[in-house]
């Protein structure tokens, strides 16, 4: 766990029994973080950028087959395999435990993307910001997040800019940041309330309680990456697809 115990340990709980696969979180994330658009061909070739994706996981065997939806985002590992291998410290874990990516520092070697077992680091194959961004959409860009240039890796930051606003507000009000001070865009948009966000270290927080639930599991947790995204699901998790 993070070294600085005075800071909240931000984490997310996703209840797969509640997720309807509506993709609202995907849209909200793209909107919030100025995630570039892609074409059908590029997406089919594995070039689309989507910091959170809803995966369809097949469960059971014919004829009792079930599709389960599973939002997959950066697991915000507490022992991230991606940060160790970065040759320029462009990706690192910050004091709040959030794994960040510093675009002007990134040289685009894609080592972190290969080292990540969850495949949640995305590369800018083109100069999207210049010739792929529809002019009508420019007005809706979020001024708190930069447009990524070509040739760098980008990833989910747990909407770190929102955390910064929350910290600033708390500092102005002269109190510490609390578990309920901010949520990432995906969580705030979930109509099924399948996603919960907060301080995993705070015993009073919802995420702390839910993470202790017998339904809780973490993706590929036997790799020792210590993810801070916790999934909830009734029954066994399918070992061949998840962990």
């Amino acid at each position: 766990m993070s070294a600085d115990k005075t800071q909240p340990l931000w984490g997310m709980v996703i209840d797969l029994d509640r997720c309807t696969g509506c993709q609202a979180c995907v849209v909200a994330c793209k909107q919030e973080n100025n995630v570039p658009f892609s074409s059908r061909e590029e997406a089919a070739y594995g070039r689309e950028i989507s910091w959170i994706r809803v995966m369809a996981v097949t469960e059971g065997e014919f004829p009792k087959v079930k599709i389960r939806y599973m939002p997959l985002l950066c697991q915000q590992c507490d022992a991230p395999p991606c940060t160790r291998v970065c040759p320029t410290r462009a990706t690192y874990k910050n004091p709040q435990g959030i794994v960040g990516q510093i675009y002007p520092r990134c040289i685009g070697c894609r080592y972190c993307a290969n080292a990540c077992p969850y495949q949640v680091k995305y590369f800018n194959w083109y100069n999207w910001s210049h010739f792929r961004w529809p002019a009508e959409m420019r007005e809706s860009l979020n001024p708190d997040v930069s447009l990524r240039p070509k040739g760098v890796i980008e990833k989910c930051t747990f909407c770190h800019h929102r955390l910064q606003h929350a910290r600033e507000q708390a500092a102005i009000e002269g109190r510490p940041v609390e578990s309920t001070d901010f949520v990432p865009a995906c969580v705030s948009s979930c109509p099924a309330r399948a996603m919960v966000f907060g301080d995993l270290r705070d015993p009073e927080s919802t995420v702390h309680k839910l993470a202790a639930s017998p339904r809780a599991f973490r993706m590929l947790e036997d790799l020792g990456t210590e993810p801070k995204v916790v999934y909830l699901k009734e029954g066994e998790w399918n070992a061949t697809t998840g962990g």
Binding site: T88, R105, I107, G151, V152
Partner: peptide, 24 residues
């Protein structure tokens, strides 16, 4: 192979940002 080849010198440790835990 680099996405930003003009930043190649960033990898030089001690003088720039070279991160010694990286096998690269």
């Amino acid at each position: 192979d680099l996405g930003r080849p003009e930043r190649f010198y960033f990898v030089i440790p001690f003088f720039w940002y070279g991160h010694l835990t990286s096998p690269l």
